[in-house]
Design a protein around this nucleic acid. Structure first.
Lengths: 107, 107
DNA sequence: ACAATGCTTTAGTCTATACTAAAATGTTTG
DNA sequence: CAAACATTTTAGTATAGACTAAAGCATTGT
């Protein structure tokens, strides 16, 4: 059920997942943010997709990827702690504040 | 703070950790339970120890290893789910029952 | 139709590391 | 002290898989 650890242990793969954990990004966008060739990124994305860990939405010639968070099970929180660390708390506060602002706008 | 995923992703290493997650075992014991040579197991144990993920207690010629659970941080629960799965719940119940029995004995 | 764009696929190289077999280290027993 | 035992260390090999460069495949624009 949980993804094989070895599968997501590789740093580049984690970096990719981190980038698309919270929002969709195009393959090109991702490739730009990661210090390997576009080809390599595409291969990782393909593997992650095959494993059900990311989802793809095609739109014209753009390919939009996003993490399939539910597929990570108990690993999700661990990864989030690794990637977003203690900031998680701060982040939740910021998001709550943003929601407050949004609510204020619509009122 | 959390251990590098790649470090514990390897199946043999996980098997070793799983064996010493809940109780100490001797190097020989561990090696017997794992389908590689004693030497290979010893190497893994050495690496895990160097990384602070297991602790060693020497007693004569025996070397007793145990997982240093706290060192795994948020990864601990994820590993437990991987290794002990939904059984975790059942297991906790069984342990509670055992404690009940133990209490009954001492009364 | 052709070129440009966004991405994937293929073929091949290179490196990290898990592993084995054997020698070495340290400890207990007779 | 020698032999047996428990484990570690060393040296060397083999393999997985991350990566690159280049070719291939769709889609859009002119």
């Amino acid at each position: 059920m949980l993804p094989d650890l070895a599968f997501i242990a590789q740093p580049t793969r984690q970096q990719i997942l981190r980038l698309i954990w919270e929002s969709e990004r195009s393959a090109g966008d991702i490739a730009e943010a990661v210090p390997v060739t576009f080809g390599a990124v595409s291969q990782h994305l393909g593997a992650l997709r095959k494993a059900g860990l990311v989802r793809l939405r095609r739109e014209g010639r753009m390919h939009w990827y996003a993490a399939e968070r539910e597929a990570f099970g108990a690993l999700g929180p661990a990864l989030e702690e690794m990637w977003f660390g203690k900031l998680g708390e701060l982040k939740r506060l910021a998001e709550a504040e943003q929601r407050r602002i949004d609510r204020a706008k619509t009122n």
